[in-house]
């Protein structure tokens, strides 16, 4: 295989394998310690894996939301100016493919409740990302779920209860399976 073929990206693996001078391992980098992995691996899986200890309530969440979120997302989560966070699912709502103006938010569009915890902890409040404690994030998550009519006012949200929240939109999600070729253009 000529050298230039290696440059074409997809063929790189083939070139690497043929080149006997290429070692199995280069030995670059250093081992990641368990401590640094634990500190950095903040992603939450949809089954709840990765959720930290702690818990939160709708009542506490209401206070934190009013203080730290309402200015951008509105007093009840629908007023803006930024993303609308509250839109309970309703039986008589038109399907999204027929309703371009229908608001998409946690209650009617998000397929997993764990995403709320994951996203708010990493990215919100927008002006002070990463500033909330785990318990605060649990409480805000509880408030958002309650405002979207997904849990009761007295529910406690923690690593066990959060992944168990049933999200109405989940049943609508399909994975893209298009492969190009001839239409139709779905």
């Amino acid at each position: 295989m000529p050298f230039w073929a290696c440059v074409a990206g997809t063929l790189m693996i083939a070139c690497e394998r043929r080149n006997t001078a290429m070692p199995e391992h280069f030995g670059y980098g250093r081992p990641a310690t368990e401590k640094e992995i634990a500190a950095k691996a903040i992603a939450i899986h949809p089954d709840g894996k990765g959720l930290p200890a702690g818990s939160g309530t709708v009542q506490d969440g209401a206070l934190i939301y009013a203080a730290k979120c309402a200015a951008c997302h509105g007093a009840t989560g629908v007023e803006g100016p930024y993303n609308i966070l509250v839109a309970p699912d309703t039986i008589d709502a038109p399907p999204f493919d027929q309703a371009p103006k229908r608001v998409k938010a946690i209650g009617n569009y998000w397929p997993y409740a764990t995403t709320i915890f994951d996203y708010v902890r990493r990215a919100m409040p927008f002006n002070a990302p990463g500033s909330l404690s785990d318990n605060e994030v649990y409480s805000i998550t509880a408030w958002l779920l309650h405002a979207n009519k997904l849990i009761d006012a007295n529910a406690v949200i923690n690593a066990k209860t959060l992944p168990a929240v049933v999200m109405p939109a989940r049943k609508y999600y399909v994975t893209d399976n298009r492969k190009g070729g001839e239409g139709p253009y779905e």
Partner: peptide
């Protein structure tokens, strides 16, 4: 989920 997904026919939401 919330973003980079698109509503498609029959009320479905296409992901990935």
């Amino acid at each position: 989920t919330s973003k980079y997904t698109e509503p498609v026919k029959d009320g479905k939401i296409r992901q990935f």
